[in-house]
Amino acid sequence: MAAKQQVALVVGASRGIGRQVAIDLAKNGYAVVVAAKSTSDASATKPFPPDPNSQQSTISTVEREIKEAGGQATAIPVDTRDFESVQKLVDETVKIYGPLDVLVYNSGAIWWASVENTPMKRFQLMQRVNVEGLYGTVQAALPHFKNQGWKARIIVVSPPIYSRFFRGKTAYAMGKVGMSILTKGLAMDWEREGKNGMAITSIWPASSIESAATKQMQRTDPGTVKDLRVPSIFSDAILAMLRAPVGDVNGLIDTDEDFLRTHEGLTDFSKYSVVAGATPRRIMPIKFPDLTVAEQADEGRRTDSTKMRNSKL
């Protein structure tokens, strides 16, 4: 009997990093569901393929790109702010392709400014798309993971936790760091419950990656292009994470460059530079703080709110 084709759901796959991840997963044999809000008539898109960092790149065009390259893909629109929409997305993915092997959460809303200059509506949008969207997607996937015997991987686009990250973008950092906390906490849940087939991992760029946002920056400062890398460094790191043993990556929060160096032995990253011969500036620290404490293994008197609530019924 032929081995089952692995299935990946990429949330936030219309352009940039998410598009590249979806395309490279398909190249590596995955059946891929590409999900985001933006759709279009891909058959009428000219020129094709569109600029991957433009509004012309949608989940519809990404689906077409994958299929024309010989891969298997389905585009499903989703609003990550709406839990019912997220549930329908995950259910439809499993209905079409069967058990879900990989979930990548790349959706994100960005606003980098001081607290004073971050309006409440902008703050709420970031929390709903970033941390709430991730939480809802994980919640929607958990029943399916249970049905398939707790064997799957989750990849989250969120950063290592360190103080400098908060500077100048506190509201944004609150949500993104919250996503990393989910990675740490859910990993500990699975370890404690003996779900040894599950792993959740966070990844973040060590250097800036070419995207719609960086293209806007280039309009005011064209010199920034020399500090950019192509998005394939990110998808290469994700593929390496998916190949790694569960114990190596469950609860890990790492950068693309650092993971490729430590787990793949890569030392020359020049092929990922947007400008040939340039060495992009690293935006992440070389070393991150250790978040564990000496009492890490001491769970104390654990409180389970579900049991407390049920005891009152």
Score class of each variant (00 low, 15 high):
residue 290 D to K: 10
residue 97 Y to W: 14
residue 310 N to K: 14
residue 180 S to Y: 05
residue 91 D to V: 00
residue 41 D to E: 12
residue 303 T to F: 13
residue 163 S to V: 10
residue 125 L to C: 03
residue 273 S to W: 06
residue 178 G to R: 03
residue 152 A to I: 05
residue 297 A to N: 13
residue 307 K to Y: 09
residue 40 S to A: 11
residue 306 T to A: 12
residue 113 A to C: 01
residue 299 E to F: 14
residue 193 E to T: 02
residue 83 F to Y: 04
residue 45 T to H: 06
residue 266 L to G: 00
residue 288 F to Q: 08
residue 9 L to S: 05
residue 87 Q to P: 00
residue 121 K to T: 11
residue 221 D to Q: 13
residue 61 T to Q: 07
residue 113 A to W: 01
residue 114 S to Q: 06
residue 1 M to E: 11
residue 101 D to P: 07
residue 25 L to M: 14
residue 209 I to D: 04
residue 60 S to E: 04
residue 17 I to Y: 01
residue 209 I to A: 07
residue 95 K to Q: 15
residue 110 I to D: 03
residue 9 L to R: 06
residue 126 M to V: 06
residue 21 V to M: 03
residue 108 G to C: 12
residue 281 R to Q: 15
residue 190 W to F: 07
residue 184 K to H: 11
residue 168 G to N: 08
residue 96 I to L: 13
residue 75 A to H: 09
residue 105 Y to Q: 06
residue 7 V to Q: 03
residue 83 F to Q: 13
residue 289 P to H: 12
residue 260 L to N: 07
residue 98 G to W: 01
residue 281 R to T: 15
residue 208 S to D: 15
residue 243 R to H: 07
residue 220 T to C: 00
residue 209 I to Q: 08
residue 249 V to F: 06
residue 105 Y to L: 04
residue 168 G to A: 06
residue 214 T to G: 05
residue 175 G to N: 01
residue 110 I to S: 02
residue 99 P to D: 13
residue 256 D to S: 13
residue 168 G to Q: 07
residue 270 S to A: 14
residue 261 R to H: 12
residue 23 I to E: 12
residue 248 D to S: 15
residue 219 R to E: 15
residue 2 A to F: 12
residue 139 Q to V: 12
residue 133 G to C: 04
residue 3 A to S: 14
residue 68 E to I: 04
residue 309 R to P: 00
residue 41 D to S: 13
residue 23 I to D: 00
residue 160 P to N: 15
residue 168 G to V: 08
residue 278 A to F: 09
residue 138 V to G: 01
residue 293 V to W: 09
residue 109 A to K: 04
residue 82 D to V: 10
